[in-house]
Amino acid sequence: MSFHEIRFPANLSFGSSGGPERRTEIVTLANGFEERNTPWEHARRRYDAGVGLRSLDDIEALIAFFEARRGQLYGFRWKDWADYKSCLPNSDVGPDDQEIGRGDGKTTEFQLSKTYASGEHTYTRPITKPVAATVKVSVDGLTQVETLDFSVNTETGVITLTEAPDVGVQVSAGFEFDVPVRFDTDSIQTSVSSFRAGDVPRVPIVEVRV
């Protein structure tokens, strides 16, 4: 897949609108009851980068980034300011934020993930684009040292431990992360006069599977 490991300028994504999108297929039966199903295991996020533009310099930066990605051709990283940490937004990332697996005495690789809980129900989201130097790991409650006890692939979100944890031992992690996305258009319509009048261009961004 064509993907550039570069983040869309965070100052431009700040203030943008967007969030998760689900696809649900609903069939209404003759008796009025419904059958609901989804072909998607994971949500797909959509954003509008145009909302975050505040100056003509921002538009220039947007166009440069758009041209370097060749429009929709290459994916890139996106900071979702509403959801970019393994912990609560106002908390600091810690090594025990998210349980990412249990030891079996053999496995050394674990996929980063974030679990969303509401009542008794949960959803676990794979994290494939962690931010370098933000990942913290603990094994059985003991904080691990990066490069000594573990390594992280920032392109896949896979943690590799130096030693396989014993059976049943909890492996946890904390991190910041980006969303893999692409532009959802091959054209950007801008107008200096319209922008100065408060009319910002629409710049759709959509999450991609990696």
Rank of each mutant, 00 (worst) to 15 (best):
R7F: 07
Y74H: 05
A64F: 13
S16I: 06
V206L: 07
T162K: 07
G103V: 10
V167Y: 03
E146T: 06
K106D: 11
R202L: 12
E109K: 14
S191Y: 08
D199F: 14
W81M: 01
A61V: 07
T160K: 12
S16Y: 13
G168M: 12
H121R: 12
L142E: 11
N11L: 07
Q189C: 10
R196E: 08
R22A: 15
D96S: 15
D48F: 10
T24Y: 11
R209L: 09
D58R: 15
A64S: 11
S86T: 01
D178Y: 11
D97T: 04
G198F: 11
L29V: 04
V137R: 08
V210W: 04
V179C: 06
F195R: 04
A10I: 06
L62M: 09
P89T: 00
A132W: 03
V139I: 13
G50L: 09
V208D: 05
Q189P: 02
V93R: 00
R69C: 14
Y74V: 00
E99L: 15
L56W: 10
G32L: 11
G101Y: 12
V51C: 09
G157W: 06
T190I: 12
Y116P: 03
R44Q: 13
L73F: 10
I100Y: 09
I6L: 15
S187R: 11
V152W: 01
A132T: 09
L53Q: 02
E34A: 13
P20C: 09
F175I: 01
G19T: 13
T28L: 12
S191Q: 08
R125H: 13
T38F: 13
D48I: 14
A164Y: 14
